[in-house]
Design a protein around this nucleic acid. Structure first.
Lengths: 402, 402
DNA sequence: AATAAATAAATAAATTAGATTTACATATTG
DNA sequence: CAATATGTAAATCTAATTTATTTATTTATT
């Protein structure tokens, strides 16, 4: 049995449970445990899940016969019968992810272990619906044509990561306001339905990044954390109870909208004080081409003169923002990632930690400040996980539909 | 940790489900639905819970025979057999709640429909463990002695609502630092175990207020909201997915620690800029007795000269704080309550609404600003609900154990 | 080195819990 | 009286647990 169903129903608190619900839950639980902890024997899964070995055995054999799980080499060296570790099968489930950003859109195909199989990119001066949907249509055709029929049948959906209320961005991205307003009425489901039958999930782009870090990166280390993704504009995501929380309207973790203060004490938002577009502007002012930031993603050394003060300012803002979010939820950690070189990321994290200790922490529990590991493609990879969670994994928190 | 315990055990996502787990869930679900929606027929419950009428029937009869539910008069006037509305039985479950505050402690006995049966109060200049535990011991004896044996057996626990890290308050409450530090190592479970076998839950006081508003007040109207309780010091709680979220360490909703700014632009916390102790200080400066604020809880008209500007300042702070929290979670609403007259509360809410529209709301969804209805006793009533949730109601979010 | 004992894993068979389905009695409206 | 909805008894079904068995291995003993 594949745990998912044709018409995904929101799991509200107010839902009764019956036997098939139990099985669905337990199947998802075992898949989720294998995803989080890596290959494991049935006996270990039974202990971890608090299920009887027999129940686990039955579910594992079923999933194995469906091709979702693969059998590892028996582990010897301990007393007793050798255990057979089970793992998520390579290519057992595939999904598509798309990220729509300030400078580029990415479409990729990944499997449920996080391996990216194909990746396509479209760059632009500012995003517009028509070229992006054309890119998706052609891109999907390209990608699907490389898949065997068996592989194609294992693709469980496509996730789109896009900023919240993109249509309000026209001034930020120097796009003609009128033309740009067409984003307002874009219906992703409807547009994609023109050329694909796959289920479509729409997620906030930074929340998608958070999702990627959560399942393929450092997220598993923490129960509750806030995630900052610093791209052209800073965004965020939040994790509660080991699950990404999207929020009622999909706008939880809108960390770019946290209050901040400009140099003259005027009220600003984090997006105005801790984003790469500030660095772009500084480069442009000084006669450099800001697009080099994106074309040389792992080497910003030629701009060091501008990058250094930007890191300082950004770290200061992140330290304050970290405490603001910890007043709302007692996060264990703050995870910072972004579209910048690893060296920049680690310097930023280090300095944020140093600024943090100087803050007023009365009534708060200081969070750990940690660097994310997924990096550039986090948003697209995370978008691809949405269909997986919809059908195969367990998500403790409610999620949006569609 | 206060609202928590030494080793918090957590119900993780990673738990398998079996038949008895299913029954437990469904029983709690029906109780929770009756609590939230009021009396209802089995047929309605079945539709709402998405369970078969038969399942609901069996569970209802069982709970009725246990005395948890009572049968209402059959409802006629519609085609078909009249339906029999079932309701939470008066006194079906009882619990104790205690709030420890700046100026007073309260102990009360309530039933699971929210009716307060007994209420005792202890006032002091500042809270200290010994007199408070003595008050609890004597108070419980007083209250229990008025109960029949049957009633006593229906008391399912005691909840304690107390501020986080109380021992750090000595300067705020003008208590001798050394003596006050004894709060640090207080173990509520152990202290109460000296004179009662009831299970003890410790919760943050403002979170308890939130819990009370959530189940007996306006909370049911919203799926996600932040709650401010303005007492001597401001505190908060948060609700996600129709359930109070306490957080990993019990310190979620530490809204008093939100960043704010003093008159000279210096960094402060909301607790310093939006609490009743500011008003107390102003009264004291002007030769009034600040304790009158607490002894005349429904009439502050004699201090109008000071109350009026305090409301203005507080509303301004609340408006900013509201948006800060909405950047973390896309709350539908902000609910404001406190230990002040209803007239003050409504003026505060009204003015917060007006200030809100002048804020920078880019990237955010404006929350509704609403007044809570539980008021003064919210924290103690809410504390009493903790044992109820532990045993009888459904809480979508994980909670701390112990 | 050969063999027996102990241990852990995996699974088949029997049992059990609790949900759903089916069928029906009942009380009401129109 | 027909239609309709509620509420429950009996039968059925799903998926869990429990009990018992097989299997592969390590460890101790001869």
């Amino acid at each position: 049995m594949v745990p998912g169903m044709d018409e995904p129903i929101i799991r509200t608190v107010s839902r009764g449970v019956n036997q098939s619900g139990v099985r669905d839950h337990n199947v998802r639980l075992l898949l989720t445990l294998l995803q989080r902890h890596g290959p494991m024997a049935g006996s270990d899964l039974a202990r971890l899940a608090n299920l009887s070995p027999q129940t686990v055995s039955i579910i594992l054999r079923e999933m194995e016969s469906e091709g979702l799980l693969a059998r590892g080499a028996p582990v010897k060296g301990k007393v007793g019968k050798p255990s057979v570790p089970m793992r998520l099968a390579e290519g057992g489930v595939l999904s598509l992810g798309c990220k729509i950003g300030r400078r580029s859109a990415v479409l990729l195909l990944a499997d449920f272990r996080g391996t990216v199989r194909e990746e396509l990119r479209l760059t632009y001066n500012y995003p517009m619906p028509e070229p992006i949907f054309a890119f998706l249509r052609d891109g999907m055709e390209t990608i699907l044509s490389k898949c065997s029929p068996a592989e194609r049948s294992r693709i469980c959906g496509i996730g789109i990561g896009t900023p919240f209320e993109l249509w309000k961005w026209s001034d930020l991205v120097d796009a003609p306001a009128k033309e740009f307003a067409s984003w307002r009425h874009v219906d992703y489901q409807a547009e994609l339905a023109r050329f694909t039958d796959l289920p479509v999930q729409v997620v906030n782009d930074a929340t998608a990044g958070c999702q990627a870090e959560h399942i393929y990166g450092r997220g598993k280390e923490f129960r509750d954390y806030a995630y900052f993704f610093i791209g052209a504009f800073i965004g965020g995501g939040i994790v509660l109870n080991h699950s990404v929380y999207q929020g009622h309207q999909g706008n939880a973790g809108a960390l770019g909208s946290l209050r901040s203060f400009g140099p003259q004490g005027e009220s600003q938002q984090l997006i105005d004080t801790a984003s790469i577009h500030l660095l772009e502007a500084r480069l442009a002012e000084n006669g450099h081409d800001p697009r080099d930031l994106w074309t040389q993603p792992q080497d910003w050394s030629s701009f060091a003169r501008f990058v250094e003060p930007w890191i300082g300012r950004t770290a200061q803002e992140l330290a304050k923002a970290s405490l603001s979010v910890c007043a709302v939820i007692d996060f264990e950690a703050i995870v910072i990632d972004g579209a910048f070189p690893d060296a920049v990321k680690h310097e930023l994290v280090e300095r944020t930690r140093r600024y943090l200790v100087n803050q007023d922490m009365r009534g708060l529990i200081a969070p750990q400040i940690e660097a994310g590991v997924v990096g550039f493609n986090a948003r697209a990879i995370g978008a691809a996980t949405s269909p997986l969670f919809e059908r195969y994994f367990l998500n403790g928190n409610l999620r949006l539909q569609g």
